[in-house]
Design a protein around this nucleic acid. Sequence first.
RNA 1: GCGCUCGUAGCUCAAUGGAUAGAGCAUUUGACUACGGAUCAAAAGGUUAGGGGUUCGAGUCCCUUCGAGCGCGCCA
Length: 580
Amino acid sequence: MADPLHTIAATLRQAFAGVTGLPADTIDPVVRPSDRADAQVNGALALAKQLGRNPRELAAEVVATGALDGVCSAVEVAGPGFVNLTFRPEFLAAQLAAAAADARLGVRPATHPERVVVDYSAPNVAKEMHVGHLRSTVIGDSIVRLLAFMGHTVIRENHIGDWGTPFGMLIEHYLDLQAESGAAPALDMANPNPFYQAARAKFDADDDFKARARDRVVKLQSFDPETIDLWQRLVAASSDYFSRVYREMGVLLTSDDVMGESAYHEAMPAVLDRLSKAGLMEVSDGADVVFPPGFTNREGQPLPLIVQKAGGGFNYATSDLACVIDRIERLHATLLVYVVGAPQAQHLAMVFKVAEMAGWLAPPARAVHVQFGSVLGPDRKMFKTRSGESVRLQDLLTEGVERATAAVQEKNPELTAEEQAAIGHAVGMGAIKYADLSSDRVKDYIFDWDRMLAFDGNTAPYLQYAHARICSIFRRAGTDRADARQAPIAVAEPQERALALALLGFDAAVQDTVDKFSPHRLCTYLFDLAQAFTSFYEACPVLKDGHEATRAGRLALCDLTARTLATGLGLLGIDAPERM
RNA sequence: GCGCUCGUAGCUCAAUGGAUAGAGCAUUUGACUACGGAUCAAAAGGUUAGGGGUUCGAGUCCCUUCGAGCGCGCCA
């Protein structure tokens, strides 16, 4: 184990058990980072309370066992019963060596690997990908990478909006265009709004068109071959476009991950059947519904989840339930992760509740709504263009890359245009993603180009710069990175010590991030690490130091820092260029 | 009306129930013939929206008031 806190917690659990007589597996020694020492132990306070003892005495008894003498140079009881720990440099060096030798950099894999479905992005066919899809895509992608890194089997699913009543009018409009031009219309899914809005306008204005559109929906839902073919063209065009955007973003989703609403269409009757057999179905105002407990409407009456509309059609609740069944019974997932905006919280809670009531979602299987807030403009309202339209995702990405590329050109005029473009892409995309990931996802955040692209502060460019500087040291040193990491690391200077402690916190940071599905925790960690590195960089010369052992040890420290930064950024879906 | 989420420095944000609430930006003061200054060192900045409660200990948990955003039966 490369995490000293984790290593020490195991030791202390035994020590507390010996002193208190309690079973070790019920004891949490509560070992935490501290600004007063390398770490602090808080477990004595709670245990003393539980046993009716004096916490300082209990803490002193644990210290007196000498369990920590091998790893700590100072152990002292302070305040009401805290224990402050100072690690021995040799202990830190050994932990660093373990991390450096580990391809996972000390991050422990999951003790119980699972099959996990992550549902994210979910744009709509024949509609724009806009800023509203940014968060689901970026957060979801990071969660996919984190879960996979932990050793879970991750199944990505892109639940695109490819089914439902709008397709009647879209297909009829498509046919109108075809009849007018005499050829298959070109579908520009990078700019689908004119197409969608023209269809919508006809639908609203023209009763005849409206009737055709409704008729077409019926044909679609009964799998009329000609209609399916037309529908397929729309879906394929959009899906191709989505894939292009994902490639540009460096997001893992591909067309193979598409599991749109249409994929569950055939499974929906069985949902009703099974709900009926489970005795959960009721009829309310002509619709078939389930009343999950704990939900009420405006009038304080029980709120139903409608699974079949009064007219006989299904809705998204039905398809979401079919989706739960599919993920559990076909894919054998035990964890369903929904990376969906906060406004869907009640809907998803009701779907999960009904799935539990029906027995589909039963332990160990469970569903988690990884919800997130909105992207706001500088006015603190929903981020819109000046003309009040939603911001196209593509435009946002392009602008970010352009701004970053301009900065790279200014700072590095000596690089080739190709190199500048590649670095600009990494920095611009990284800045956008990092801005989205670095604040608590449940809160809204304000979109601000200047702040996210700043080279100071908690930004992607700052982290990327720290990484690039280390790469620069190795270019200059002419030392092979893999050789450099073999050298023993001495922890002598305060900045070396601070950097060492930061590096050894990687495991805890990743575990915490995954447990809470909160990428901002990893961001905070990486920023702290980068700051510890730059302080070290200022204070501790690597190549200029005269002693060979010091130089080798510091190079090893640099290598581990660079790998930790690159790996951490990678878990966020962000590239770490070697120069910038 | 009910429900969910939020309210922390001038601004943008952190803080698994642990000691003195931390960063960054902006402001002020230092360090440049630089292992890459896209940097570093430091100062200043707070009644954690208000009020109760639980706890050895509360920004965090519970209740309540105020404020903001989003939901609340046949769109998805």
